[in-house]
C-alpha cells in the first residue's frame, strides 16, 4: 500500500456505492484521485447523530481522510466538495442516470488501488453536468459511457471500418468487430447504424455538444441503443442500473 508508512492519508474522492455493515456502519466504495478505487469503513454513519453520514452518499464529491487498516481502510474525516447526489434525488430520471454512471465507473476500475485519474475526472465531470442540468441527461449518460469505453481501451470506431480502416461512414455496426465495419469486413451479426447516430456518438465522445444537442430524438434513441449494447458486450456482465434508467 502506498501510504503504509504514514497510516493516515488524504485524497479527493467521489462516492460510488454504499453498503450497510453491522449495526450502524457502512462500507463506502470510493473512486479517489490518487489511490484509484478503494473501499473504506465509515463507522456509525447510519446513526441520526452522525457528523459525516450526510457527506458519504453516492455521487458526493468529497475531500477525505483515511486510516489504512488490514482489510478495509477506515474513513476518519470527510469534507464535502459538492454533494451532487443531494441535488439529483429531486429528479428521478437524473438520479437513475447518476447511478448508471457510478456503477459504470466501478466496473471500469476493476483493480482496487490502481490509480484511475482519467476515470475520476470523467465521473466528476459527468456528475457536475448532470447536477447542473447542463445538457439533456440521456446524452450526458451516453457521452460518459463512450468516454469510459475510450479510457478503458474499447473506443468503438465510428467512421473508418474497424477492420480494414477503409474511411467511412459505413452502414454496419458490430459489437464484436469494434464499431463501424464496412460492407466487406462485417461479421454476420452486425447491426445497421444510421450516419446521423454515428455522428452523434462521435460528437458525444469528443464533447462537441453543439452538434449533439441538435440531434433528433430518433437518432438519440438509436445511438443510446448502440452505446449500451456495445458497453454491455464489453463488460460481459450487464449493468444492474441501466435497465432502470428512464430514457427521455
Amino acid at each position: 500500500m502506498s501510504a503504509s508508512q504514514t497510516k493516515l492519508y488524504r485524497d479527493e474522492a467521489i462516492i460510488l456505492r454504499t453498503q450497510k455493515l453491522g449495526e450502524a456502519d457502512r462500507i463506502i466504495t470510493l473512486l479517489t484521485k490518487e489511490h484509484g478505487r478503494i473501499r473504506g469503513v465509515a463507522k456509525g454513519v447510519r446513526r441520526t447523530m452522525s457528523k459525516f453520514g450526510a457527506r458519504l452518499e453516492p455521487g458526493s464529491h468529497v475531500d477525505i481522510q483515511m486510516h489504512s487498516g488490514k482489510t478495509f481502510d477506515t474513513i476518519t474525516q470527510v469534507e464535502a466538495i459538492m454533494n451532487y447526489g443531494e441535488a439529483l434525488t429531486e429528479d428521478y430520471q437524473r438520479w437513475t442516470i447518476a447511478h448508471a454512471i457510478l456503477e459504470t465507473a466501478e466496473r471500469f476500475t476493476q483493480q482496487e488501488e490502481e490509480p484511475a485519474q482519467q476515470e475520476f475526472q470523467l465521473v466528476v465531470g459527468g456528475m457536475k453536468a448532470l447536477a447542473e442540468n447542463r445538457y439533456d441527461s440521456s446524452l450526458i449518460l451516453d457521452a460518459f459511457l463512450l468516454r469510459s469505453l475510450s479510457i478503458g481501451g474499447y473506443e468503438p470506431s465510428m467512421t473508418a471500418c474497424s477492420r480494414c480502416e477503409k474511411p467511412g461512414p459505413h452502414r454496419y455496426f458490430s459489437l464484436v468487430g469494434g464499431g463501424s465495419v464496412c460492407m466487406d469486413c462485417r461479421p454476420s451479426a452486425s447491426a445497421t447504424a444510421s450516419s446521423e447516430a454515428l455522428e452523434l456518438m462521435q460528437a458525444l465522445l469528443k464533447g462537441d455538444w453543439d452538434v449533439a444537442e441538435k440531434s433528433e430524438p430518433r437518432h438519440r434513441r438509436e445511438a443510446s441503443g448502440l452505446v449500451t449494447a456495445y458497453l454491455q458486450w464489453h463488460l460481459e456482465r450487464g449493468l444492474r442500473s441501466l435497465p432502470m434508467v428512464e430514457r427521455a
Binding site: 453516492p58 429531486e90 428521478y92
Partner: peptide
C-alpha cells in the same frame, strides 16, 4: 438518505 429521498420523489410523482 439518498435512496430514501429518491424513493420519496418517485412515489410523490
Amino acid at each position: 438518505n439518498l435512496e430514501g429521498e429518491a424513493t420519496a420523489t418517485y412515489l410523490a410523482r
